[in-house]
């Protein structure tokens, strides 16, 4: 076990009824690392992230965040986690300032610290110009950035982002990727996506899930073509979609 290890998840499994969403997934995240969680829709990415953030109890397995067991001491462990779910959890009837201060207070910061933390997060996510506006009136891109600001404002050791660039325009995507890279220097980040170039742009390591299982886990530097590996792994055990593979590859390329 590595002493710098921020997340240590062992043998995570989760069933929904008879359907197995995640099966014996091991996941590890080191400090200063950006881990890309990759996989087709329904591969178990979001379920895994919900388990890592304590929003879903795993059927079996254990999770340690910064050395603290998430299942035994959820509140202590959760204070080291910042999470942006697929849909940013923002209150549309609050202003950006109110919302970020509320989030900071929820994480146990005092009144003054909360204001400072909110200001810093606004600056990092370029939200200064909209800080007095109602979140409901902001564009999708800004709402997404408010969601990211919410995830980083208490300076958690681990930041977990579920498809952070969905619905953004190309400029915003570039900005958010730059932000993730920057955050990755001091925090550990787990990022889920199904956009392959995004993984190549920001991640150090990639873990590919398919049908709830880890099928690939390696440093990006060791990978020649992520795309080839991805399609090979996803389609190898599913002959029904092999013929589709070529078409989709063209579309994605």
């Amino acid at each position: 076990m590595n002493s710098e290890s921020l997340i240590e998840a062992a043998e995570l499994s989760r069933f929904f009824g008879a359907h197995c969403a995640v099966e014996k997934v091991n996941l590890q995240l080191d400090k200063g690392e950006v881990l890309g969680l990759l996989g087709p829709n329904g591969a178990g990415k979001s379920t895994t992230m919900q388990m890592l953030t304590g929003n879903l109890a795993p059927g079996s397995g254990e999770i340690k965040v910064n050395g603290i067991d998430l299942l035994d001491e959820p509140r202590k462990a959760k204070s080291h986690i910042g999470y942006l779910p697929e849909q940013p959890p923002v209150y549309r009837d609050m202003t950006v300032n109110e919302y970020l201060r509320y989030c900071a207070r929820l994480h146990g910061l005092g009144r003054r610290e909360a204001i400072i933390a909110a200001d810093e997060a606004k600056e990092r996510c370029n939200l200064q110009e909209v800080h007095r506006r109602l979140i409901g009136n902001l564009s999708k891109g800004f709402q997404q950035r408010v969601g990211i600001a919410q995830a980083i404002l208490h300076k958690p050791a681990v930041i977990i982002l579920d498809e952070p660039t969905v619905g953004l325009d190309p400029i915003q995507i570039r900005e958010i990727r730059a932000l993730i890279r920057e955050l990755g220097e001091e925090h550990g980040i787990i990022l889920s996506t199904h956009i392959l170039p995004e993984v190549q742009a920001v991640c150090d390591r990639v873990q590919i899930l398919n049908r709830g299982r880890t099928v690939f886990n390696d440093k990006l530097g060791a990978v020649d073509s992520l795309e080839n590996i991805f399609f090979e792994l996803i389609y190898q055990d599913d002959p029904a979609v092999v013929e589709l593979a070529d078409n989709e590859q063209e579309v994605l390329a």
Binding site: G54, N55, P85
Partner: peptide, 9 residues
């Protein structure tokens, strides 16, 4: 938005 509360400590 419930996720915000359930993720917070």
């Amino acid at each position: 938005t419930l996720v915000l509360l359930t993720t917070a400590p």
